[in-house]
Amino acid sequence: MPELTLRELSVKEHRGPRLAPLDVPAEGAERLLPRERLRGEAPALPEIPEPAVVRHFVNLSVLNHHIDKAIYPLGSCTMKYNPKLNDEMAQMPGLQAIHPLQPEDLSQGALAVIWELHEWLKVIMGMPAITTQPAAGAQCELTAILMTRAYHAERGNPREEVIVPDSAHGTNPSTVHQVGYRVVTVPSGPDGCVDIGALKREVSGKTAALTACSTWTARI
């Protein structure tokens, strides 16, 4: 039988974890905020006791195939095994319960982790500088094409086209279009690599960049 939805499991007045009692004098939302800005009734979120919530998500979880169960030979992005230690380290309170705007001298551990990672990735990539700010591979591409545009614009002409191999991930043409460039597609040869002859014919003074496969800019 399929797992019910949260809405179907909800029973009015069931409650999850409770908060400690309010330890300051209660003024009431109606006194602190304009009445017309309040939503009245609480949002109709599920009302389910914790054990039932846990069972619901455990029941759903076992419907998934996942890499800890067996390999998953699919993907334009690949799913690799991650050592269990990684999660354990990332969940240390000293690395997890910290605010991004706390003073730098009280964040030296977090900054050291980021710096070490950058130093390693620079060696592995063979590049002199790095940012790990983008949130996903597709956003890395966006960052790269925006940087390309800024580079050319600073030299007086942002140019018009970006060359994308037909073997590139769908994000490549989509990103190029989002940054306002025309996509010029070059075919692959019989060996599966970019047809260099075709590429040479397409490159011109209008070309702003050639996108490589998304793995060049992928999320680590």
Binding site: L45, P46, E50
Partner: peptide, 20 residues
């Protein structure tokens, strides 16, 4: 999971206590 656990009343309590 967070919304499912806290539910309607739990979320209302978090918001109200933060406000107070």
């Amino acid at each position: 999971i967070h919304l499912a656990l806290l539910g309607a009343q739990g979320m209302r309590d978090v918001a109200t206590q933060s406000l107070e």
